[in-house]
């Protein structure tokens, strides 16, 4: 297999929001992340693609330390990821996360889901929190569902609520871990549209996805992973029309021509 190393400036600048340096992680014998170097600039939309088991979800989850790493450094806005505790909780509040399985709090209404972080982490005033929650729910198009429970909503609606819940914390960066993989085909677009809008508004985003259309249209950069390594990084046009590595060519030929 050919590996293409991307030459990058080793000095991080103030524009770098998320920096991963030489990150390694094992799941038992499986070396799931191997020497990962990745820098995400403020306002950048990075789409991570690759075959299943390539470590892209794990990569996404290490950024807010839902997965711990064995070696290497991760910094967010210049600060290294702390150990589990108050410091880490504070940092996580600034990193929004959207999961494949939505993970809305099942015993709380949609509105309460979006208010919870504001009230308990940001210690916001209840009225202000509700106002903001309703505005965000309107923004993602589920304002009329505010008083329902998550189980009463469709998958696409639930995922949009999950995005609103993350946005309510005013995050510096949003992580999307395969946000449309658990959705019925007709609901994928409503979620992608919300994400497109976010990207246009300048949100820094790391998106693990199989949606090549989204990668093409919204990403500033595509990161292609295979077998725990970053094999190729390129602008979407360049990556999709002219991939350099054999592994990426092989992957693209499998998903684009059938």
């Amino acid at each position: 297999m050919t590996e293409v190393s991307v030459t990058k400036d080793a000095v991080s600048t103030a524009e770098d929001l998320v920096v991963l340096k030489n990150v390694n992680k094992h799941f038992g014998a499986l070396h799931v992340l191997q020497d990962i170097d990745l820098t995400i600039a403020r306002g950048e939309v990075v789409v991570v693609i690759g075959p299943s088991g390539s470590g892209k979800s794990t990569l996404c989850r290490t950024i807010n330390r839902l997965e711990t790493i064995d070696s290497g450094d991760i910094t967010i806005d210049g600060k290294p990821l702390p150990q589990e505790g108050k410091e880490l909780a504070r940092l996580r509040a600034d990193v929004g996360m959207v999961f494949q399985s939505f993970n809305l709090f099942a015993h709380k209404t949609v509105l309460e889901n979006v208010m919870l972080g504001q009230l308990k982490v940001r210690k916001a005033d209840k009225r202000a929190a509700e106002e903001k929650a309703r505005a965000l729910l309107d923004r993602v198009g589920v304002g009329t569902q505010a008083d329902k429970y998550p189980a009463q909503l469709s998958g696409g609606q639930q995922q949009r609520v999950a995005i609103a819940r993350a946005l309510a914390m005013d995050p510096k960066v949003m992580l999307f871990d395969e946000p449309t993989s658990a959705l019925d085909p007709e609901m994928i677009n409503e979620v992608l549209e919300v994400m497109q809008q976010l990207a246009r508004d300048g949100m820094t985003m790391v998106v693990v996805t199989h949606e090549m259309g989204f990668a093409r249209s919204a990403a500033n950069r595509v990161v292609f992973m295979a077998d725990g390594r970053i094999v190729e990084e390129a602008a979407p046009d360049q990556f999709f029309s002219n991939p350099r590595s054999d592994r990426a060519k092989d992957f693209l030929s499998k998903i684009l021509h059938h």
């Binding site: 996580r92 509040a93 990193v95 993970n103 809305l104 982490v121 993350a166």
Partner: peptide, 9 residues
């Protein structure tokens, strides 16, 4: 996980 990701202790 979702609760931790929000920054809850």
């Amino acid at each position: 996980e979702a609760a931790r990701a929000l920054g809850l202790s």
